[in-house]
Design a protein around this nucleic acid. Sequence first.
DNA 1: CCGCATCCGCGAGGATACTG
DNA 2: CAGTATCCTCGCGGATGCGG
Lengths: 127, 127
Amino acid sequence: MESDTYYSYDTFKRACPSHTVLETLANKWLYLVMAALKPGKRRYSDLQRKLEGVSPKMLTQTLRVLERDGMISRKVFPVVPPHVEYELTPLGYELAGLLDHLRIWSETHVPEIMKSREAFETQAETG
Amino acid sequence: MESDTYYSYDTFKRACPSHTVLETLANKWLYLVMAALKPGKRRYSDLQRKLEGVSPKMLTQTLRVLERDGMISRKVFPVVPPHVEYELTPLGYELAGLLDHLRIWSETHVPEIMKSREAFETQAETG
DNA sequence: CCGCATCCGCGAGGATACTG
DNA sequence: CAGTATCCTCGCGGATGCGG
């Protein structure tokens, strides 16, 4: 079946492209940038303010990666002072939706998780 | 409203518990362990074989975190040689489902993403 | 077989200063 | 305003040996 267009991905294999994608996705700042852009386009400084504690380096780096992977578009307005807008692409919007489910789920279960953490620590001391 | 049980989480704030949870989740090995456990219980060595390239240290560490947060249960059989089984809790199974959506989505769009990456690199050289 | 202890390299990522 | 450049630290994560 040399003409088989159905390629079997295996995320568990390090060399598999889907593994690479996963590695990119499994990132705190990337996640937060996507969340911040979901409601609509935003400027660089908007993002910097919204993402508490992000350094310019990490913000830029994250935006570049997302742009590279086609998740966001970058629009530069040739004015002084500079004006740059970032916006989710249709593809990126899909991903943002999935990540949002994750965020909502997390928030819903925070109390449960925190309780589990405390119980675990307590037992660690005791045991 | 001192008796208000409705706490407003903000994942963008570093101190917010939901931010902490996110930080934990945004992790490649954690993600893969969850995926590996979704079909059912597995032994330590099973996981080690399945997750290509994982070191015992990272595997153990990841399993501990997941156990701490109540996502998996750890069952030790007091036999020689040792026998330990890991299994998703109901809570963990929910999370695994969400992560699976993400994995499937990623695999579906791998070609698109790869193409975008190539285009980006090409333009970087040119531009 | 499970997994802890230890050592270590290295690069992710933070802080800061600076420029078009 | 939107980044880039630079320095530096810290802990992630790999490798290995051992112990129950």
